[in-house]
Write a protein that binds this DNA or RNA. Structure first.
Length: 272
DNA sequence: CTCCAGGTTCTGC
DNA sequence: GCAGAACATGGA
């Protein structure tokens, strides 16, 4: 299957830190989305897709339905953000499976992108089903996860294992998916009732999987860059995110992703 | 060995 | 409500 695209960079979209389950291979990538696997390769405005998936679901996954020129012109408020956009032009916010996204970002607390990838892969290997694709074996992310704290520790989660174990008992995949029907504030509040989910993780889930582009996750790097470039003083989470909402507007989440990618140290592409 | 990583929770004011 | 400390783990 082939999809024609514009204003799209597969590399920036996959490697900007929003998503964990991909592997560079040749000129393209293997991408694990839920329990499906795809091979994607971009050349210019053409995206070649191999694997069991229809065009619409691939487009949705990669944010190809977003009106890019409109979003970019809306957030291009100053030279700094413009430079950040230029560096990763074509980056799009993905629409991840909410359940996988929630678990991934609970794993991310006080950790690193590489370590989160490690944990999510472990969870998949230990609880997901095996998929054979183009002569190799992969593991899909589990549709349901009935894991004990001990089993989660064995996946490398450390103290986060206890939080995730409690959250797994209190919410189902369908309930997490259903949060997309609520408003942003209500969905975020509901997420923050769950163990291991605070402001930042809730915003990541809202932005990367529930389709709320106004969510503005403030992690170490985004906090740093916002204080260095925009606020010029100490500021807590609420102050930074409300500034961002007012300054960048409805698509503040896109601004956040460009800023995160601009400010954090360069990440090498993951090997298989 | 020490420091850091896409924070959250618990504690004490 | 807000600041500080504690928290497992792997990589640099």
């Amino acid at each position: 299957m082939r999809i024609s695209t514009s204003d799209f960079s597969l590399r920036h979209t996959l490697e900007c830190g929003q998503f964990f389950r991909y592997y560079p291979e040749g000129n393209g990538y293997f991408v694990l989305a839920g329990d499906k696997i795809l091979r994607l390769e971009q050349s210019g405005g053409r995206l070649a897709v191999a694997g069991k998936a229809d065009t619409d679901s691939v487009k949705a996954l990669l944010g190809l339905g977003d009106n890019y020129p409109h979003i970019i012109s809306g957030i291009s408020k100053d030279p700094f953000i413009s430079a950040a956009i230029r560096q990763s032009y074509g980056l799009r916010l993905m629409r991840q499976e909410p359940w996988e996204c929630m678990i991934s970002y609970i794993c991310s607390a006080n950790s690193s992108v590489g370590k989160v990838r490690f944990c999510v892969n472990r969870i998949s290997e230990n609880f997901g089903k095996k998929i054979s694709f183009e002569g190799r074996e992969y593991y899909g992310f589990p549709r349901k996860l009935d894991a004990t704290e001990k089993e989660l520790r064995e996946c490398g989660l450390g103290y986060r294992a206890a939080h995730l174990a409690r959250t797994l008992e209190s919410v189902s995949p369908a309930e997490v998916r259903r949060l997309a029907r609520l408003g942003y504030q209500d969905a975020k509040e509901r997420l923050m009732e769950l163990d291991g989910i605070g402001d930042k993780v809730a915003d990541c889930i809202a932005l990367y999987s529930l389709g709320f582009p106004q969510a503005f996750p403030v992690d170490r790097w985004v906090g740093r860059v916002m204080k260095e470039q925009y606020i010029r003083q100490k500021a807590n989470y609420r102050q930074i995110s409300s500034f961002a909402a007012e300054y960048f507007g409805h698509y503040a989440g896109y601004a956040q992703q460009f800023l995160f990618n601009f400010r954090r140290p360069g990440q090498p592409a993951t090997e298989r």
